[in-house]
Simulated assay, not measured.
Amino acid sequence: MSTIAVVLAGGTGLRLGLGAPKQLATVGGRPILARAIEAFDSAPEIDEVLVVMAAGHVAEAEVIAKPYAKVRRVVEGGATRTESTLRALAVLEEEPGDARVLFHDAARPFVDARIIADCVAALEREDVVAVAVPSSDTVVVVEGDRVVEMPPRDRLRRFQTPQGFRLAVIRAAYERALADPGFAERPPTDDCGVVHRYLPEIPVRVVSGSEQNIKITHPVDLLIAEQITARESAPGSAG
């Protein structure tokens, strides 16, 4: 049974104000994309890595990915997260349904070995696994400018990536999604959301994430990322 990591690097970096995809930006002197790839390339649980890169930047991603032996291929992503996932599934068309696949946002360059190992271990027993951390904020539901619901914080989690699946399950979820005329009008924000909506009978197992597994989206996130890398390279650090 193979375990494949899909590094989704289709983001444009508009909210960062960059002229190129944010995955090509550097933190600690290295491209964000390189850090994300290396996390999976160095994980003993991972057999192959597939990179899905923003349109027009595949050649740059191939240069970044070249040192990593497990990278199977770099392909061009779509205009949306859903399209990029579907392109990855097309590349994996010949893989058996019991293969394990982890989808990871390249914009999370600090995913650690423990999270990857926990996801793969959970997929020994489960069909779907998500990574999450407790919410440190009170999250409210708002309609217009009025709070209409305040869910108990101790039940709330913030999703991260990777998200793991048996390949047959994520294929089936997207087949149902694409058959739904309303899917494009209300697309889920991640792949677990597709399974939850279209295969509600399949439970999503949650494993613990890490506060360091941040997603680089806004300019302040780059500052935080630089602090993380500085701490990793400090004398006496484990990194």
Rank of each mutant, 00 (worst) to 15 (best):
G56H: 11
V49L: 10
R186W: 03
S84I: 10
T12Y: 03
K66V: 00
N213F: 10
S84R: 08
A230D: 12
G77S: 11
P67C: 10
R205T: 15
H104M: 05
L223Y: 07
D105G: 09
D41W: 08
M150P: 00
E45A: 14
A113M: 02
G56Y: 12
I64M: 07
L33M: 09
A54L: 09
L50W: 01
G97R: 07
V206W: 13
V101T: 04
R171L: 05
L16T: 04
A20L: 06
P151I: 11
S233I: 00
E185R: 15
V131S: 03
F40D: 01
E201G: 15
A88I: 05
A173E: 08
A173V: 07
A55I: 05
E83A: 13
D127N: 13
A107L: 13
A117P: 01
I46K: 02
R35M: 13
R153K: 14
G97S: 06
G10Y: 15
Q227D: 07
R100M: 09
R30D: 02
I224S: 06
A113K: 13
G239T: 09
G97Y: 09
P187M: 13
V129G: 01
D41Y: 10
E126D: 14
S84H: 08
A132P: 08
L92H: 02
R205N: 04
E94T: 15
P134L: 02
R30I: 01
V148M: 00
Q160M: 10
A177W: 06
R87F: 05
A173R: 06
D127K: 12
V74F: 09
R125W: 04
L18N: 00
A90E: 15
A88Y: 06
R176K: 15
T80K: 03
D190A: 05
S135E: 15
R197F: 07
A39P: 13
L89R: 02
I170V: 15
V140W: 00
R197C: 06
R146Q: 05
A54H: 15
I170Y: 04
V63T: 14
A230F: 03
P44N: 08
A107M: 12
I46W: 03
A43H: 01
P200G: 11
P203T: 11
I202C: 10
A132L: 09
S136P: 03
E232N: 10
V52L: 02
R146W: 00
E45D: 15
E124K: 13
G97K: 08
S135W: 01
R100A: 11
L24V: 04
L18S: 02
P203H: 12
D137R: 14
E83N: 04
E149M: 11
P187G: 12
G28A: 07
V7W: 06
V206M: 09
P200T: 12
A34W: 03
A65N: 07
V101D: 02
D145I: 00
E185C: 01
E175K: 14
V133Y: 02
G11T: 10
L50R: 01
A61T: 05
G236C: 10
R100L: 05
E93N: 08
V27T: 07
L222P: 08
T80A: 05
